[in-house]
């Protein structure tokens, strides 16, 4: 009983250290950047998967969905091989003076790759639900392809796009495996909330700090869900 009382007391007196605040801020920054960068690609892939008629569509779909089923650590390792100084992309980026490994860019890339399939799936389902006849009608009314895309396809699948973005954002907040491999766990640089919690659990007496960040993480996730639901309802009402 005393232990429980102490724990409750501790929880109610939680405070965030500057390092924690930095981790929360970095998490939000990484999740936001990854989601925003991935959205145009997500829309393009979703459109292709929903309306494309290429033969190899199933293969491409499989490749896009792969990070969803692979262990994030595997994804992180593959990214490390690609973006490392000897990797195919890494070599090229080095020439441009861009450092991906152990940097914030790396954390964003890792999050974007891991969360991308979730976004694409949602957008694809939303776009598949758009009646092709609306597109045909708009084309016969004089709208070109892009015009029809922006005035018909995007607005009619906006709920799905937003839903995909929320899903990806939420997934990014919890991303650990791929990030720790590609971007490392550097406080103030690449240490996001999950990485900070991981570090606290490995340090004697770090439980309270870990618990604090867990609560922050829960609050953030819950807030995202609430905001997402609220906006979703607004879309529904039109």
């Amino acid at each position: 009983m005393v232990n429980l009382y102490d724990q409750v007391k501790e929880i109610t007196m939680l405070t965030l250290s500057p390092q924690d605040i930095s981790a929360v801020w970095l998490s939000l920054k990484v999740a936001c950047s990854a989601t925003l960068i991935a959205t145009p690609f997500g829309i393009a892939c979703g459109y292709f998967l929903a309306f494309g008629k290429t033969r190899g569509k199933a293969v491409i779909e499989g490749m896009i969905s792969l990070p969803l089923v692979l262990p994030p650590v595997v994804v992180g390792y593959l990214l490390l091989l690609s973006f490392g100084s000897n990797g195919i992309i890494g070599k090229f980026l080095n020439l441009l003076g861009i450092q991906v490994v152990f940097s914030l860019t790396g954390a964003v890339i890792a999050s974007a790759v891991v969360g991308f399939p979730l976004m694409v799936r949602s957008i694809r389902i939303g776009m598949e639900a758009v009646d092709q006849s609306y597109i045909s009608v708009s084309r016969t009314l004089g709208a070109g392809w892009w015009d029809s895309f922006f005035t018909i396809v995007l607005p009619l699948s906006s709920r799905a796009i937003f839903s995909g973005m929320s899903l990806m954002f939420a997934r990014n907040l919890g991303e650990f495996g791929a990030t720790v491999i590609l971007a490392g766990n550097i406080p103030g640089v690449t240490q996001t909330i999950p990485l900070a919690i991981y570090e606290y659990t490995a340090v004697p007496g770090g439980d309270r700090m870990a618990l604090t960040l867990c609560l922050v993480s829960i609050s953030l996730s819950f807030a995202i869900l609430l905001v997402s639901e609220g906006i979703n309802r607004k879309f529904k009402k039109g």
Binding site: S133, Y134, S136, S138, R139, G142, I152, G238
Partner: peptide, 20 residues
């Protein structure tokens, strides 16, 4: 010619008014 360049209007069986 693409549909938007043909100058042919279509009224379908179902009106297909844009719902948004």
């Amino acid at each position: 010619l693409k549909p938007d360049q043909r100058g042919i209007g279509v009224v379908f069986q179902h009106a297909h008014l844009f719902p948004h």
